[in-house]
């Protein structure tokens, strides 16, 4: 009987725990993917998350606007080959992101395309 109970318990609860650290991703529209292109202003290779500050010129040719793109932490990205200078100020890059739901200039990084065409992952 005891064995059956244990087996039932184990089978019923082999659940995955969330993969994300630190905060909810509810702020992002995980169903939407948009690509933005811009010039790196600053790369913060930091905990608990890395940030890419990028200046994006609107399609209508207005003044460049600063976007904040959130990426994973150095312990994940560094082990995948990223370095603190993987993105340098002045680099023209493309970013595939889940945008913020509220329409502000920010998002969760999915893929970044470096000036030499290399594509890197960077977010969960």
């Amino acid at each position: 009987m005891r064995k059956h109970t244990l087996a039932a318990l184990l089978s019923g609860v082999l659940l995955a725990w969330p993969a994300f650290a630190h905060h909810s991703f509810a702020m992002f529209d995980r169903n939407a993917q948009v690509e933005i292109e811009g010039v790196v202003k600053e790369f913060q290779f930091t905990n608990p998350h890395s940030w890419i500050q990028v200046m994006v010129t609107p399609a209508d040719g207005g003044a460049p606007k600063e976007w904040s793109i959130e990426a994973l932490s150095p312990n994940v990205l560094g082990r995948a080959g990223w370095k603190k200078n993987t993105l340098k100020p002045g680099d023209r890059i493309k970013l595939l992101i889940n945008p913020l739901r509220d329409g502000n200039a920010g998002g969760n990084l999915l893929l970044v395309t470096l000036p030499d065409g290399t594509k890197l992952g960077g977010g969960a």
């Binding site: 609860v13 659940l15 995955a16 725990w17 969330p18 993969a19 994300f20 909810s24 991703f25 509810a26 992002f28 995980r30 169903n31 993917q33 994973l72 994940v76 990205l77 082990r79 995948a80 080959g81 990223w82 595939l96 889940n98 999915l110 893929l111 290399t118 594509k119 890197l120 992952g121 960077g122 977010g123 969960a124």
Partner: peptide, 29 residues
């Protein structure tokens, strides 16, 4: 886990799974 995934060249885009994506809470157990 995260350290089993590739975030370097050739990385795949994380899947978005349903309306709440990865944000569906996994409890209750």
């Amino acid at each position: 886990g995260l350290l089993d995934r590739n975030f370097g060249p050739g990385a795949e885009v994380a899947k978005t799974t349903g309306a709440q994506g990865a944000q569906i809470p996994r409890s209750p157990h």
